[in-house]
Design a protein around this nucleic acid. Sequence first.
DNA 1: CCTTGACCTTCCAGGAGCCGGAAGCACGAA
DNA 2: TTCGTGCTTCCGGCTCCTGGAAGGTCAAGG
Lengths: 131, 131
Amino acid sequence: MNIGEAARQSGLPAKTIRFYEEIGLIQPTRRLDNNYRDYDTRDVHRLRFVARARALGFSVEQCRELLALYGDRQRASADVKAIALQHIAEIDQRIAELEAMKGTLQTLAARCHGDERPDCPILEGLAREGG
Amino acid sequence: MNIGEAARQSGLPAKTIRFYEEIGLIQPTRRLDNNYRDYDTRDVHRLRFVARARALGFSVEQCRELLALYGDRQRASADVKAIALQHIAEIDQRIAELEAMKGTLQTLAARCHGDERPDCPILEGLAREGG
DNA sequence: CCTTGACCTTCCAGGAGCCGGAAGCACGAA
DNA sequence: TTCGTGCTTCCGGCTCCTGGAAGGTCAAGG
């Protein structure tokens, strides 16, 4: 099938599929005589695999590792789990950062009148000396 | 003061300060005869203001708006609050996405043995047909 | 047979928010 | 004078694509 069909079936834009090929993520696409890329269902499976991994927040490099494990029948599930757990830890970290920001912002916003007057604890909070 | 000192006092790398100038965020730096940038405490205040806003997750464009309001004595605190509340909403959105990813990952990871055997619910989850 | 339109190809630029490094002045102390 | 540090500009790269231009291909319609 052509790239458009592979895009439809995988949920990835054609542009993205080409990009993944360029960086060597989803590699060996055959070419037809007209130089069009030709995908089979196996390729589509791999594309969907990557699409889902990306949707779960894995980096492209992590996807590369996962894809390698996916295609390795001798893999140890421990290797997969290690990547997943590390990613969960990164997500936790990110959530904690966002919660901290949110907490600060909510505190400031709660003290701000939000009317036409110029005095504003939010701006004061951003401008303050300490912290 | 030179850019190095401004960097020290604001907590921003000199590179970043130059970048902010280039994109017109912190503009009017005078130049000395030797072409060195020259900062005063007012500039440093603005730099720190931006540093803090960035640390709270505001985009550079939001920082630009906040900085304009910061320097506008006729501002309405409602305008500031609107930006802050919108940002909080974005953070909430982002947290929700991360929590969803985390939930899926934890479910998958919990079912993975994590040993030397190849069968792995995580990979199966990424490869599955549905969803 | 020619045109139209949808597809495919490659390549180049950009966006967000910087960071690293190279090449080349400027400055202060020894 | 020389050394070391700091400043200048410019260019490239990072992540992960996305948009667009210029051009080849293909199937259908007139």
